[in-house]
Design a protein around this nucleic acid. Structure first.
Length: 492
RNA sequence: CGGGGUGUAGUUCAUCGGUAGAACGCUCGGUUCGGGACCGAGAGGCACAGGGUUCAAUUCCCUGCACCCCGACCA
């Protein structure tokens, strides 16, 4: 059924070079320039009038909606319900947890005037909602029977960053933050690991991205947490991106807030808590991980448009338009866009939709009408396929599934190829200066060594991978005994 | 917040001590459409803000602001 209509598939590589976008920096030449340009050109987002903030345009917001839809289902299936807490937090709340306030203080936006009057108590624009939420949790619970509390919220938060970057680090960003409280530590940890798994599933299955799940070191963990879990992904320039966080908060916040409930025996119990978040940063990772010199490449499951149909007009506009519309009606299982714009040429449209990363393009011209076929072109490898229209839906489904799997496989392969075990510090430094990527090296877990390594190589511990084996090794920096190989990388 | 750079049309840039020009984009008309089509006509600028030097500043100098790059901080 699938036949290759163009003579010589091996010319595709050559042709693809001619297709290089005129007004787009090559990804292979300058990743960060390419990244900014492709976001603007694909109309995912734009710079906002306020420094460090971004406007997420409809095409970019559709990506976020895709993520929200996928993940919201996972969250609800776990019995966790959505709620909404206010954007403003009384300043004194934040001061209750010492590490928490120290961690966030430099990044806060503060409201000092409201309603034309100076406020007696200043209001913090939430950088995260632990404190407001737990103050309410405290009021809602008297007994262990009121636990667990299982709440998530989809919202925006503000962290005033000095250096911002579209999607990856903006002063305001969108995310979900889940906050649960339990009678036992075990139950809480269960949720922490479940959330990490849900995030991993979202990256692997929806966004076609591969990464390493693990635990953060003491210096890298969330302000106020007992333990922070993460999913770390490698970007094409060899730098790592933290894809999410899931925190075991222990009883730190409960104690700071003096929140107790009565346990079964009537004694005081500080609830065990967790919090976990996944943000619009993931979209930045998605863009970097999959794009190429032609622009975005979106894995089909997340792509707002999966199939774009482009009519190629000759004389018979009406015949072609009818054929195209009939075709689109057969493809109701997919997100289909028909590009009927008459003022743009076919070639212009090819380029436009390639920059936007649409997985499949269907070209319909005289040839296709005559043979009752459709010509499909894959975004990821440029392959051109001509198919009969009677079985098209099934074939497209097959192709999109294949493209989804291959996107993941490509990113996984790239990550594995750029993950290296090193045993000497010289080797470590050399790789960090050249190829970068993930390094697996023994570390004695002394924060001093971690700090020195960071100063000298820019690399930080990303995590202790969950599947790490206990071994007898020597710290790559100080040579003292070390049990585990930690994952190191320079990070975004 | 430290080091460096840049602010001129919607965008990317050129120009110059005597108040501006290109390409792309945009608008209108026509011809086109299988890899960013073509022809013709048009619209579009207080040269980031303030101060100084000068007969004269978009141009030189200072200050502020914004943006970009490189560090420290971070989902």
């Amino acid at each position: 059924m699938i036949s290759c209509s163009t003579p010589g598939v091996d010319t595709i590589g050559e042709n693809m070079q001619n297709f290089t976008k005129k007004f787009l920096t090559k990804k292979s030449q300058d990743l960060s320039k390419w990244y900014n340009e492709v976001i603007l050109k694909a109309e995912l987002a734009d710079y906002a009038p306020v420094k460090g903030c971004m406007v997420i345009r409809p095409y970019g917001y559709a990506l976020w909606e895709g993520i929200v839809g996928f993940m919201d289902k996972l969250i609800k299936n776990r019995g966790i319900k959505n709620a909404y807490f206010p954007i403003f937090i009384p300043e004194k709340f934040l001061n209750l947890e010492k590490e928490h306030v120290e961690g966030f203080a430099p990044h806060l936006a503060v409201v000092t005037i409201a309603g034309g009057e100076e406020l007696k108590e200043r209001l913090i624009v939430r950088p995260t909602s632990e404190t407001v939420m737990y103050e309410m949790y405290k009021q809602w619970t008297q007994s262990w029977r009121d636990l667990p509390i299982l709440i998530n919220q989809w919202n925006n938060v503000v962290r005033w960053e000095k250096r911002t970057y579209l999607f990856l680090r903006t002063s305001e960003f969108l995310w979900q933050e889940g906050h649960c409280a339990h009678a036992t530590h075990a139950e809480s940890v269960d949720v922490v690991l479940w959330a990490l798994d849900a995030y991993q599933k979202t990256y692997n299955e929806l966004l076609g991205m591969y990464g390493i799940a693990g635990v953060k070191s003491e210096s890298e963990r969330f302000a106020g947490a007992a333990k922070t879990y993460t999913y770390e992904m490698l970007m094409p320039d060899g730098k790592a991106l933290q894809g999410c966080t899931s925190h075991d908060l222990g009883q730190n916040f409960a104690k700071a807030f003096n929140w107790t409930v009565q346990d079964e025996k009537g004694e005081k119990l500080y609830p065990w808590q967790n919090s976990w978040g996944f943000s619009t940063r993931s979209i930045g990772g998605l863009i970097m991980a999959h794009g190429d010199d032609q622009g975005l490449i979106l894995p089909p499951k997340i792509s707002p448009i999966q199939v774009v149909i482009i009519p190629i007009f000759k004389k018979s506009k009406e015949r072609i338009n009818k054929y195209v519309k009939d075709l689109a009606e057969k493809l109701t299982d997919f997100r289909v866009e028909i590009d009927l714009k008459e003022e743009e040429s076919a070639g212009f449209k090819f380029n436009k939709w390639e920059v936007k990363g649409v997985p499949l393009r269907i070209e319909i011209g005289e040839k296709e009408i005559q043979d009752n076929t459709a010509t499909l072109v894959r975004r990821d490898n440029g392959e051109r396929i001509t198919l009969k229209t009677n079985n098209l839906e099934k074939e497209i489904n097959k192709l999109l599934t294949e493209m989804q799997n291959e996107a993941y496989a490509r990113h996984r392969k790239f990550t594995l190829e750029n993950t290296r075990e090193v045993n000497t510090y010289d080797e470590f430094k050399e790789i960090m200066q050249t190829k970068k990527g993930f390094l697996k090296a023994f570390w004695c877990e002394n924060p001093e060594c971690e700090k020195k390594i960071k100063e000298e190589t820019k690399a930080t511990t990303r995590c202790l991978p969950l599947d790490v084996k206990e071994e007898n090794g020597q710290c790559v920096y100080c040579g003292k005994n070390a049990k585990y190989r930690w994952l190191f990388a320079q990070s975004y």
